[in-house]
């Protein structure tokens, strides 16, 4: 007789009774719960009852017009800088792995330079470029001017921030993408080459999609980081969330209150991004796991149904939700 759970239809009596044992007690879990709750309560109490604290101001500014406008600008900065970062990062990573030494070297230099200088300095550089180059012109040899503009018109404070954040991000993304590309097994490249696919086609259709599974989690991390780093656009006087917070608190001196307002919004936005990241990762996991992991909603529903479910009994239990539809 083979050992293991009885096959459907086999006599139920063959399976021994399910184990009923008294679980191990965890007294320290209760103690630590009490300690943590006490500390959190104390901290909240201190802030709520702080003598200089004006919760009314927090409430007033949380949905204030200037703050909401600042949020829109912060989101614009984040999205645009990440788009530049990801696109240019992929290009740089592919260039870095190119057999053409010049192309590979250009990419190496780019990463070395933009990763090696602070992003704050880079934003500052673009913002102040007009002080040394008042005009930017593009002309072909022979004197014909294709394009001519004042640097201040061309690089607005917003553009300066986008350039600083985006070009810096591209250097980091290039390394993330490169790590993803080299994580794909070489046999994949060979199989694709054997089918007659060109280098770029192999990269685009075979290697890059598989590398995404490795690329996406750190990219989500970078996006969340970018949302907060975009506050450096402050130095270019871009009216994003932190700039707005500064402007308001400079006028009314509710510094901590406005810091709390900004923190609530930054936390809210990063929380939404975290959820989004989960779903993107799930999409790129297809083909690597036999079944996709459950979404949080599915897991919650499953928990509601199975939390109080009785321990598995011998014999078929038709009412349990099936894991394999």
């Amino acid at each position: 007789m083979p050992v293991g759970p009885p096959l459907p239809g086999s006599p139920a009596g063959l399976r021994p009774e399910a184990i009923k044992a008294i679980p191990v007690r965890h007294p320290w879990r209760w103690v630590s719960t009490v300690v943590v709750v006490a500390i959190v309560a104390e901290v909240i109490y201190i802030f709520v009852t702080a003598p200089g604290m004006s919760w009314g101001a927090v409430q007033q500014y949380l949905f204030g017009r200037l703050i909401l406008q600042g949020i829109v600008v912060t989101l614009e900065l984040t999205v645009l800088a990440m788009v530049i970062g990801v696109v240019l990062g992929v290009v740089m990573a592919v260039m870095r792995l190119s057999p053409n030494p010049v192309v590979s070297w250009v990419s190496w230099f780019y990463i070395w330079f933009f990763r090696g200088t602070p992003v704050l300095v880079q934003i500052f550089f673009w913002y102040n470029l007009a002080s040394i180059l008042p005009h930017i012109a593009l002309s072909i040899p022979g004197g014909h001017v294709l394009f001519h503009a004042s640097t201040n018109d061309l690089i607005s404070p917003f553009t300066a921030a986008i350039l600083g954040l985006g070009l810096n991000e591209a250097a980091y993304m290039a390394e993330i993408v490169r790590a993803g590309l080299i994580s794909v097994e070489h046999g994949q490249t060979e199989a694709a080459q054997a089918l007659g696919m060109t280098r770029l086609l192999v990269m685009r259709r075979i290697v890059l999609p598989q590398a995404m599974r490795v690329i996406v989690p750190p990219t989500g991390n970078e996006t969340i980081s970018m949302l907060k780093t975009s506050s450096l656009a402050f130095v270019a006087t871009v009216p994003e969330l932190f700039t707005r917070q500064e402007q308001i608190s400079n006028a009314n001196f509710d510094v901590i209150e406005l810091a709390i307002v900004a923190s609530i919004w930054y936390l809210a936005m990063t929380s939404i991004l975290t959820v989004g990241q989960y779903y993107v990762e799930r999409y790129f996991a297809r083909g690597t796991q036999r079944e996709l992991p459950l979404t949080p909603l599915q897991r919650f529903r499953r928990m509601l149904f199975t939390f109080h479910a009785p321990p598995p009994q011998a014999g078929p239990v038709p009412s349990l939700p099936s894991q394999h539809p």
């Binding site: 060979e190 199989a191 007659g196 598989q210 083909g287």
Partner: peptide
């Protein structure tokens, strides 16, 4: 690439595209 496309190859480790 054109010449490779006229020759089929099957590998020990299959090397199917998992995605």
């Amino acid at each position: 690439c054109r010449k490779r496309s006229e020759i089929g190859m099957v590998f020990q480790r299959f090397n199917l595209f998992p995605h």
